[in-house]
């Protein structure tokens, strides 16, 4: 069964919406700057330069929510534009996040540790599932809601889960993607791993040293053919292949030969019924850590041999921590979309 993509939306440090984002990429405008929060001011980060209140006002969002949920609502609303809720179309939402409402929890917990005072009601935002339920509410989706949390591969896994649910007939249409706000928790976490570049990150460059962190959200709408006839939306692309495999090498590092990435690319091509020669472009994870880029390069070489298509990582311009793939595919208008996922463990 064919899976159609009939809407997309995104927000990141290089723009709100596809047009702004594409313009920034074309002009090689980077969104990575010195952070503006207390916790980010020492680092180069891909921050969205608007406060929660500014964003809520601009996009007419009334819900009391975490920044993670807010960014998700903005991107998902863009993606769902032109669509409407209908009894005849079984519609769901599958979001993904790594930090969930940590941006709220960490502020309260800091107050608690420092002055013993906290607003306990704020912890209602902590659970990742809550952010997805709020995004669904913002779109008026009352059906199936799910949240995936698999670090860097989260959003790609959400696309895959959505496509499989449509194929099984459980859903006709599903809004899928991911969202993560920049938090002190993640900055300190990656600092403890010592894989930050104090300068701009340099994916696939000989002098690469590490990553920059960022925030953002990206969503697409997946539909079956039947759903598309009812929603009257136009397909911008198909989602034709996907796979998820585990590297099972190390909790935070990739294997030197990129076994997980090899397995998932091979299977994704199989699901799509394509060969490596059919692929015109690869958008890589390209975190700019020496370990990732080596592993990924080896995996690409082993699949594509002598005929490696152009590949790149846009991390140098726009950093979206942990779930960047959805947005990237949009920039290329899904000319040929083959999802590949390697869960980095």
């Amino acid at each position: 069964m064919e899976i159609f993509i009939t809407g997309y939306g995104l927000i990141s440090s290089i723009g709100i919406g596809a047009d702004e984002t594409i313009l920034s990429l074309r002009n090689e405008k980077s969104g990575i700057t010195k952070g503006s929060n207390d916790f980010s001011s020492k680092y180069l980060v891909g921050e969205i330069k608007f406060s929660d209140n500014e964003l809520k006002e601009r996009f007419g969002i009334m819900q009391n929510c975490s920044r993670t949920a807010l960014l998700g609502m903005i991107a998902a609303k863009q993606a769902f534009e032109g669509h409407s809720i209908s009894e005849e179309i079984k519609t769901g939402l599958i979001s993904s996040t790594s930090v969930g409402g940590m941006d709220v929890s960490e502020k309260e917990f800091r107050k608690y540790l420092q002055d013993g005072k906290q607003d306990l009601s704020q912890y209602k935002h902590h659970s990742s599932g809550v952010s997805s339920e709020q995004i669904a509410k913002e779109l008026g989706i009352k059906g199936f809601v799910n949240t995936i949390s698999t670090a860097c591969s989260s959003a790609a896994n959400a696309l895959m889960m959505g496509a499989r649910m449509i194929q099984s007939g459980m859903l006709d249409r599903v809004v899928v993607g991911g969202t993560d706000a920049l938090t002190s928790f993640t900055i300190n976490g990656f600092k403890s791993l010592m894989i930050f570049d104090e300068d701009w990150c340099k994916p696939f460059d000989n002098s690469r040293k590490g990553l920059n962190l960022g925030e953002g959200a990206g969503f697409v709408v997946l539909e079956s053919e039947k759903s598309m006839q009812l929603s009257k939306q136009k397909a911008v692309a198909n989602l034709s292949g996907w796979s998820n495999a585990s590297d099972a090498f190390h909790q935070t590092a990739s294997s030197p030969d990129g076994q997980g990435a090899q397995l998932s690319m091979t299977e994704a091509l199989k699901v799509a019924g394509l060969t490596p020669d059919d692929i015109d472009y690869i958008n890589a994870h390209g975190t700019a850590t020496p370990n990732n880029d080596l592993s990924e390069s080896q995996a690409i070489k082993s699949i594509f041999k002598e005929n490696i298509p152009p590949f790149s990582s846009t991390k140098a311009l726009q950093v979206i921590l942990w779930l960047h793939r959805v947005e990237l595919k949009l920039f290329f208008r899904f000319l040929q979309l083959t999802m590949d996922i390697c869960i980095r463990i």
Binding site: S127, G129, T147, S149, N157
Partner: peptide
């Protein structure tokens, strides 16, 4: 295949 779901 390795997947993690978190929905309250």
């Amino acid at each position: 295949y390795n997947m993690t779901h978190t929905q309250n």
